[in-house]
């Protein structure tokens, strides 16, 4: 759609602007303010310059948390995106069963994060949980509270359980927009199942897949509540991801300066990656439109 140039449209955007300025800009300025100051209590602050930033960039604790975070997000994306596509391809197209699948699949998305944590905490426990009990009965030594590998597997399976449906629902929406004629044409050409997927379905899903990857990247990079409830960041520090580390630092230890510098770097990393996704996405949008 060609849009007309009209600067008065700013008035329509103004309410959003004021609201977001109140709920985002003011707090962000507070963070910036803390990141360059030091305090010894009593509300007395001293200029600290870039000291906290240097400390954050060189801190081994944060490097380790960042490493775990990147690994976690990479694993999550590597499992959830292909699995989500696969499930979407197998969903019924319409009718009662399609509605039922949609509703059941959306269920995990609407469970409060801490309840997701609670569900898996209970489910995985060796004494009262179905999963823990079953694995133990099969002779597997499984205990997510003491073994770091078990903790990782639990947290990853939990996230797959929680969010794969989002990817699947997005892909399903993309698949729904493919006209039946395309499939008929492919049938006449005797295209293989793989060719149909590669040249018809995948290109049509490209847009929604990018949204899915963007959302999953952002949300898994910010994950806090679910692993916090299940493992509390442990055993040791093995499941302490960036947000958990940050909250520990800011609210647990009240190290405002380092926590603020950490926050800003954290935010910038997410921003940078998301900006790349967003640019690719808008360019695709432009290509698609004649």
């Amino acid at each position: 759609m060609d849009k007309s140039w009209n600067n008065r449209a700013w008035f329509l955007v103004l309410p959003v602007l004021l609201l977001v300025a109140f709920s985002a800009v003011i707090p962000l300025m507070t963070v910036v303010n803390y990141s360059v100051q030091d305090t010894f209590g009593n509300n007395e602050f001293f200029w600290a310059g870039l000291e906290w930033f240097e400390e954050t960039i060189t801190s081994e604790r944060i490097h380790a948390a960042l490493g775990r975070q990147v690994l976690f997000t990479a694993i999550i994306l590597a499992i959830e995106v292909p699995l989500g596509i696969f499930v979407a391809l197998n969903m019924p197209k319409k009718g009662f069963w399609a509605s039922l699948c949609l509703i059941l699949m959306a269920m995990p998305l609407l469970i409060p994060f801490n309840v997701v944590g609670t569900i898996w905490q209970i489910f995985g426990r060796v004494d009262i949980g179905l999963l823990g009990r079953t694995l133990t009965a099969m002779g597997i030594d499984y205990n997510y509270t003491s073994d770091w590998l078990d903790a990782w597997v639990t947290v990853i399976v939990m996230d797959v359980w929680h969010w794969t449906s989002l990817v699947a629902l997005l892909c399903y929406a993309g698949l729904q927009s493919i006209p039946e004629a395309y499939y008929q044409a492919a049938k006449i050409d005797q295209a293989s199942r793989w060719a149909v997927f590669r040249y018809i379905e995948l290109p049509k899903m490209r847009g929604v897949l990018l949204i899915a990857v963007l959302l999953r990247f952002m949300d898994s990079f910010m994950i806090y509540t679910e692993p916090f409830v299940v493992t509390g960041g442990g055993p040791g520090n093995s499941t302490t991801f960036l947000s958990i580390d940050l909250v520990k630092m800011a609210i647990g230890q009240f190290d405002l300066g380092p926590a603020a510098a950490f926050s800003i770097i954290y935010f910038l990393v997410i921003l940078l990656v998301s900006w790349v996704f967003y640019t690719v996405m808008t360019n695709l949008d432009r290509e698609d439109r004649p």
């Binding site: 007309s4 707090p27 609210i251 935010f267």
Partner: peptide, 26 residues
């Protein structure tokens, strides 16, 4: 409409969706 700074404004709005709540809690 198109208006002064619309694209930047739109992306800036989206960045708020990307902000980790942990950053904003305190």
């Amino acid at each position: 409409y198109r208006f002064l700074g619309d694209k930047h404004l739109f992306f800036w709005l989206l960045t708020n969706r990307m902000a980790p709540p942990a950053v904003f809690a305190l």
